[in-house]
Design a protein around this nucleic acid. Structure first.
Length: 465
RNA sequence: GUCCCCAUCGUCUAGUGGCCUAGGACGACGGCCUCUCACGCCGUUAACAGGGGUUCAAAUCCCCUUGGGGACGCCA
């Protein structure tokens, strides 16, 4: 295969969508797999809806996901002269023509076609009028009226379209700006893109674009249309499906490697393998392994992957991320060493960083202000337990070390002398230490909390009995 | 309405004519472990949309039906 060039071409009219992120991943992987080039192009020809803020957001999301691109991003808004040059060429060669029909007139034509059971399209009224430029006029492609156009899709296989179904689409708007279809073709050709990998929803655009390639005398790239991601209702993913942007997942405490792993498995597979890193993927990714059918987004599986990566992540990294979450919630920064001691106790118990931060809260709370669940207190901080708590305070104060092993040994001795089962003490102590009935193991927690906090919390709990 | 795409457990998928009594993963359910909650481990549940062909043989190939999705913009 010749040098591979792929590109990701988002429109900066919103944050990076997970569907867009997935096609970016596929393009990135294909290029990296073949030692090719991965380009980024911002499709901002719609000057009304495109914003710098969204461009920045998309760039940030890509960086977060670990998708680096080659060279600088290109902006279509800076290339209007290039597009217009090509449109003028088409005008001169007869491949395009001026059209004075108003949007309302065109809409009427479409209605008419629809009413006759045909595909709604422009009827070519101005095609032979030989119009020149003028206010309010657009430029349309003089598309072939007969014949067929073949899309040799890398994913879907060959797809044939009747040219009669295709439209004399607008190339240049009345305000002089180029339209999407024209700009994509000119850019993909001038950037020497070899593989256009994009969402399924563009399949119907492809024959139209091929017509433009042909009119311009440009060589065709390979096309590959990846199936869409659907919401739980099997409809195209949209805002009403909840979290749909990459930044939503970042905010909700997901690790980028989990999102990438999840997304790549939607519509692509490598045997029975479930766990993939970006580095591993670039060794095995292939377009042939892409599926053809749309897939439903499954939040539970993403959560499972996130939990998996949380268990694997280095403590120092998690500590930093949890601190960020804490900060976003207006909590003071935790001591890095203390937080790093807490994290290992929470890794197997947290599916997201947000959950981890929530669970870290009881470690970080001031001893006299630790929130204690009322129901838990009523059930476990009972009068008969009070003496035990006080006796344990005395016992622990006399202890030499405060490590897991010493603590466990001391408790075993206590249980023996008092002839009591650990079960009767465990929950009361847990409530005393954390304020709730669910937590990491007692001894490992006590070791992390340290003697001072443990004693203070036990004393406080005794007063509540 | 017209055109295009798609069709294996609830979901993501393996499967490229015999290895399929259809495999894995998430979820759900049950069990083990156990100081609680998790983790982990073990097990159960559950699918080739329907109908015709082709073939010695079909989840795999062809056709039809049905179902689902997408596209029909001076948005991208």
């Amino acid at each position: 295969m010749t040098q591979v060039v792929t590109r990701f071409a988002p429109s900066p009219t919103g944050h990076l969508h997970i569907g867009g992120a997935r096609t970016a991943i596929f393009n990135w992987l294909f290029a990296r797999r073949h030692g090719g080039t991965f380009l980024l192009r911002i499709e901002d020809t719609d000057q009304l809806r495109s914003t710098q803020e969204m461009t920045d957001s998309i760039l940030a999301s890509m960086r977060w996901l670990g998708l680096d691109y080659d060279g600088e991003p290109s902006y279509q808004s800076k290339r209007f002269d290039v597009y217009n040059e090509r449109i003028d060429e088409l005008l001169a060669s007869g491949g395009a023509y001026w059209c004075s029909c108003t949007p309302d007139e065109v809409e009427a034509m479409r209605e008419q076609a629809r009413a006759r059971g045909l595909k709604p399209k422009y009827d070519g009224k101005c095609r032979r009028a030989g119009l020149g430029p003028g206010p309010g006029r657009v430029v349309r492609l003089a598309a072939p009226l007969t014949g067929t156009t073949l899309v040799a899709d890398v994913v879907k296989g060959p797809v044939v379209f009747e040219n009669a179904e295709l439209d004399d689409m607008i190339l240049r708007r009345a305000d002089g700006t180029p339209t999407y279809n024209l700009a994509v073709v000119v850019d993909d050709a001038s950037m020497d893109v070899t593989h256009v990998i994009r969402g399924d929803d563009h399949l119907n655009n492809t024959p139209k674009q091929i017509l433009i390639y042909q009119a311009l005398g440009l060589p065709l790239p390979h096309f590959g249309h990846v199936p869409m991601i659907l919401g739980p209702d099997k409809k195209k993913m949209s805002k009403r499906h909840g979290a749909t942007s990459v930044i939503d997942y970042r905010r909700d405490g997901y690790l980028p490697e989990a999102l990438v792993n999840y997304l790549v498995r939607l519509g692509w597979s490598h045997g029975d393998q479930e766990i993939f890193s970006l580095a591993g993927l670039r060794e095995v990714f292939s377009l042939e392994a892409l599926g053809k059918s749309a897939s439903v987004f499954n939040p539970e599986k993403l959560l499972w992957l996130n939990a998996h990566y949380i268990k694997e992540a280095p403590v120092a990294r998690l500590a930093g991320l949890v601190n960020d979450v804490l900060g976003e919630r207006g909590r003071p920064a935790a001591d890095p060493d203390y937080l790093s001691a807490i994290i290992p106790l929470l890794q197997a118990r947290s599916q997201t960083l947000v959950e981890m931060a929530d669970k870290a809260a009881c470690f970080l709370a001031a001893d006299d202000a630790l929130p204690i669940d009322a129901e838990a207190a009523a059930k476990f901080l009972t009068p008969e337990i009070k003496d035990h708590l006080l006796a344990i305070v005395a016992m622990l104060s006399a202890l030499d070390g405060f490590g897991h092993a010493e603590l466990e040994a001391a408790f075993n001795a206590y249980l023996e002398t008092k002839a009591v089962k650990f079960k009767v003490l465990a929950q009361p102590i847990r409530v005393a230490l954390t304020g709730s009935t669910a937590s990491p193991g007692l001894f490992e927690m006590m070791e992390v909390l340290g003697e001072k906090r443990v004693l203070a919390r036990l004393r406080r709990a005794a007063t509540l009995c």
